[in-house]
Design a protein around this nucleic acid. Structure first.
Lengths: 342, 342
DNA sequence: CTGAAAGCGCTTACAG
DNA sequence: CTGAAAGCGCTTACAG
């Protein structure tokens, strides 16, 4: 039977002090007499007192809660980012509440409502660019920090982002260094409901770096489709069975790269002997499969995002800080020197 | 500039009613006059009023919060379970707060503290058996529902579990049907810090079903090590290069099965032609790689767990409900008939 | 160093 | 159907 829950009143009564003093003792206020403090602490322990968070929060005028708007399903890396957020929050007095987005409508509702309902002291938005219909600004009642969002509409907001353009360039550099000249890119269809930009930027960085070596990507070597392994496989199959197949393919994500590898196997090509494949993200499966890829600092991005948000809650900064995390080449077993070279 | 936040008082004032009436109107109380209600609602809209959750919660004596104690990292399926929980909660008025466990100490602390601090109205514990030092009971101040926990210490608690024994039997049946008689099992070392039971139970189901067909698993065909792909790979390599290699291997998890597949490749064996491999869990990578496996109903387990918990919060049941979700064989590309058979 | 009191923003018996 | 009042369990200026 749940005994009547014990409140600070009970502690105060038993310790023979006022509720005010009990509160001070419990919160480690400097001003309270050491003996009284100890007495209160002992009693509190004895009664197994746990302060009501809701009362405390109402009184303090703070929710002591951070909300994370995130999409578990489409982007598996979110979990690693979440772990980073959690790592930072676990030492703080903030709770982490999840707003999982499973549709565009839900994203819009969360982004719109949460920013003004005082349900949280701050919001972390992961990989979800706000729609045009919603204006986010620093004067929103609750601070917002974006992680992995590149939309220009948030250029005035605090954020931590990767650098997809540089990452694309890294992939190009790697393949060029291996002697490849017949290259291809497989990425997301330009129009997606959420407005993700990563594929586009990775592509831009890729062709940019190629251009520096006077290598061009003909239209037939750029395949775009809805994000997914099967779609990527279809695209790759088309390229690999054409008259003029590439010797290396850069996929905008590991998921897509795995589709490319599957297509190679189907077509009877060996990876990396006949075809080099490089992905992006470094998801767990990449390690399983030995996929060469571009790694993002996922955990770190979460930790830093939480850091930023806590700082903003404490004291809003004049200038929105923007942290950029450099991508990193991870060479595994799906890329090799082009046949006959270099 | 964050304008002074608008409270129910402001709404009441402007609508020319008492705070009590405003509250009733806002909460859809039947008792309030339709006209007054509409007036209040309009004003509320005009003022962009959002009620303070903390005040509401304190007043109601409910936190309107569900806590999920979960380990993101070691068991990737947790995310799918979480999605199920979220799906159920999203329609409710409960927030979902995450208590991510990254160490045994943290698990113990969470399990011990959360059950008596009134930080949540209920707790969902995922895949984490409570340590002996902590007694969980139905009389704990906040209801607890376990998902995927099989420890006898919680046999009196509401829970939703898979059936690892049946799953193991399913795997055996499948391999036997394909004509395999030279079998092996690779699973977790008996002692792990968290006390997981899945590997042990899957093993038990496996050998049980084999026994029905008078097939035995000699000691050399049971490999146990710390849970991981690399460890499993080592174990499999040992078996495959022995004098008497198996024709099929059942791994206690997909992660381990992927290690087995890697070992086969290293050893020059083709899968499934020379070696059949079956895993357990059906994680995302299983689909990528075409791994035959035993699927658990992860999403469903989360949804049902949340369901149970909400019901317990509403009205504790006399008898702790226990829901069992049957595992399911998913045949993909890593299992085939034994050479020359059946 | 300590206490009485007001206040945080809601909800809901209790009267009317 | 509506309002005045008490209460949820804390914190913290304000006096002393």
């Amino acid at each position: 039977m749940p005994r009547k829950t014990v409140t600070i009143r009970d502690v105060a009564l038993r310790a023979g002090v006022s509720v005010a003093t009990a509160s001070r003792a419990l919160n480690g206020s400097q001003v309270v007499n050491a003996e009284t403090r100890d007495r209160v602490l002992v009693i509190s322990e004895e009664l197994d007192f746990t302060p009501s968070p809701m009362a405390r929060r109402l009184s303090l005028g703070r929710t002591l809660t951070i909300g994370v708007v995130v999409m578990f399903v489409t982007r598996p890396q979110s979990v690693e980012r979440l772990r980073g957020v959690d790592a930072r929050l676990t030492a703080s007095e903030f709770d982490l509440v999840i707003y999982n987005v499973e549709s565009v409508q839900q994203r819009d509702r969360y982004l719109g409502d949460l920013a003004r309902s005082h349900r949280t002291d701050g919001l972390l938005v992961m990989s979800l660019p706000p729609p045009e219909s919603i204006t986010v600004s620093r004067s929103s009642p609750v601070p917002i920090v974006f992680i992995d969002v590149h939309s220009p509409s948030i250029s005035a907001m605090p954020r931590v982002v990767g650098d997809d353009v540089s990452g694309g360039a890294l992939a190009a550099r790697h393949l060029l260094d291996l002697g490849h000249r017949e290259l291809a890119f497989i990425g997301d269809a330009v129009e997606d409901p959420y407005g993700f930009t990563s594929s586009r930027d990775r592509h831009a960085g890729f062709v940019g770096e190629l251009a520096r070596s006077a290598v061009v990507l003909p239209p037939g070597r750029v395949g775009l489709a809805a994000h997914g392994r099967y779609e990527a496989r279809e695209l790759a199959r088309g390229m690999l069975t054409s008259d003029d197949p590439p010797t290396a393919i850069f996929a905008a994500s590991d998921t897509q790269a795995l589709g490319v590898v599957a297509a190679a196997h189907e077509t009877g090509l060996r990876v990396p002997d006949d075809l080099s494949v490089i992905g992006y993200d470094d998801i767990e499966a990449a390690d399983y499969v030995g996929l060469t890829t571009i790694r993002q600092h996922l955990f770190e991005s979460g930790r830093l995002g939480a850091d930023l948000l806590l700082a903003e809650i404490e004291r809003p900064s004049d200038q929105a800080p923007a942290i950029q995390l450099p991508p990193e080449l991870v060479v595994r077993a799906t890329t090799a020197s082009v046949k006959g070279g270099p």
